[in-house]
Nucleic acid binder design. Sequence first.
DNA 1: GACATGCATGGAATCGATTACATCGACGTG
DNA 2: CACGTCGATGTAATCGATTCCATGCATGTC
Lengths: 344, 344
Amino acid sequence: MASIKDVAAAAGVSVATVSRVLNDHPSVSADARTRVLAAVDVLGYRPNAVARSLRTDQTHTLGLVISDVLNPYFAELARSVEEEARALGYSVIIGNADERPDLQDHHVRTLLDRRIDGLLVSPTDGGSPLMLDAARAGTPMVFVDRWIPGVDVPVVRADGRAAIRDLVAHLYGLGHRRLAIIAGPAATTTGSERVEAFRAAMAEYGLPLPDAYTGQGDFQAESGRRVTEGFLDLPEPPEVVFAADNLMALGALDAVRARGLRVPDDLALAAFDDIPWFVHTDPPVTVLAQPTGELGRAAVRALVDRIEGRPPESVTLAARLVVRRSCGEPALHEPSPATNRSQP
Amino acid sequence: MASIKDVAAAAGVSVATVSRVLNDHPSVSADARTRVLAAVDVLGYRPNAVARSLRTDQTHTLGLVISDVLNPYFAELARSVEEEARALGYSVIIGNADERPDLQDHHVRTLLDRRIDGLLVSPTDGGSPLMLDAARAGTPMVFVDRWIPGVDVPVVRADGRAAIRDLVAHLYGLGHRRLAIIAGPAATTTGSERVEAFRAAMAEYGLPLPDAYTGQGDFQAESGRRVTEGFLDLPEPPEVVFAADNLMALGALDAVRARGLRVPDDLALAAFDDIPWFVHTDPPVTVLAQPTGELGRAAVRALVDRIEGRPPESVTLAARLVVRRSCGEPALHEPSPATNRSQP
DNA sequence: GACATGCATGGAATCGATTACATCGACGTG
DNA sequence: CACGTCGATGTAATCGATTCCATGCATGTC
């Protein structure tokens, strides 16, 4: 592969001049510029990003460590992140943690070794020493979706509290009183927060959330299945299950179907995260939708601000309730922006 | 960030010795090794992968350019690729082309600039000059899922012909005679091959595939919707629609639902690619499932063989028919490995 | 005891870029 | 006409690693 030396030789100039042409340095004669560009063209020369990065100490690359690519929510997040980063002149390297702290660490380490300019993380756990050290050492970092409390890193996320209150109001309005939740890992903020918000909203209606009705999942479909089976085995099963992410909702759907039961007649279902498939499930699933694309874009902007020396901003956007048919009330048709909040 | 020089100074040795310790070179005294490792530990030193790559001309990184991350099929492919690559000591940088040739080129260019060791591509088109040049110039490359005919690059893919024959047999057995297809872009092999195989299989049953029954899609949901609407507007609409990928099937489902019609009563549906959601759509969708994970792993193995100087092998795996309820015959329960092939 | 052998180690070149500094010629000004 | 200024260019240092080569020392052999 041709190097800058080959170009210099072909154009009859020094490597410095070639570099100047390539970086639009002003003081290069028109003649030299022409000859260099011609040589670049003839040789099919492309600058070696590795060498350039070593010298400039910038890679123009962001790392993105997500919890699970197979989760359509994170796939969409990844897509929007890459899109915005590209618009700002950065590339993105994605690390998929599969909800495993060890894999998350592996990717963080690899990304740091590559000297990425900044890191976008959706932590799968309370924070490994590695990540905390990196943050403390000054690696530009932004948390997205999930975060780690007590760490001085900007957070870009959706606040589900209001939407969860809307959901509980909706369920209460439909006559449901026994509500259960399939929670995510307690170590994740989205895992614990959603339970808390759910419990608080239920309290507003004088409803308890017994331990038997809070199942522990791990954001994967299998755990949704397992927890739902547990619910169905109870002497008095819940009337509604709220899954804290879309994959656990899928698992819940599996469990209900496997018993020959029906949603919502035997068990109603609602989920966090909206994805295109939920419109076509049997029945269509009532969800709390996050502004996923906007989340990804805002996270990239915050991170690039930080990298380029501007003060980064934490951003919190609102999730919103999208009523479909899985909780009992038939929605007339899509889209249904039903978000009527009624206090008790 | 500490460099190898800092480690050398802290350990009281030269950088050469530090490098030897780090690379398990045999001739290093136990004493020196201990001191170096201690210094590494104290300083929290991590080798700079950028510098290492520049010197060794290896990045231990593979590029993967896929057509669309939002497509669960490709998300799963990406995941299995990363998994196998990690097992073999490589990292993966994913480029998402969103089915756009210009984006594909952007990512190929960026990956080559980074001097990745090899490239895994699922081309969105007939092949840009950039990619063809790279292949000709000797960049280790392997095509996965889709490929470009006439280019000397190993291909790892699923052969859908047999499964498509099974599908047509299944449809014929259910009494369907008017079969339509939503094809992918003709520039992609998976786009054109699936149509050809479908046409050929129908011919075995003496069924024609009129132009009016071959819709042109682009592997995105919206095109599936548009084409399906066209089918439904025909004086004599088809009885079955076969979508060449899962997203177009989703679009078809949308179109049917929007008209207040039902699958399979008003229009039966089958799709290429199996994804977990298809079990829970209304109705569950009959599909041709690819061994996606195995595809990704085989592609990585072929590419790494090529990179490390072993002869790479093209691999073709079989897709298989998974019968569910979207074509009319109720499957008893999952899993249903119904693959009975009956010749006419 | 002289010399070959081999291990441990350090010095320095190298990868491919960027960039500070030096140089040189042309030009404008007093 | 002498000198300062400025634009264009080249030389060389530098980034952080790897690795060739030379050196020094200990050991073994005759």
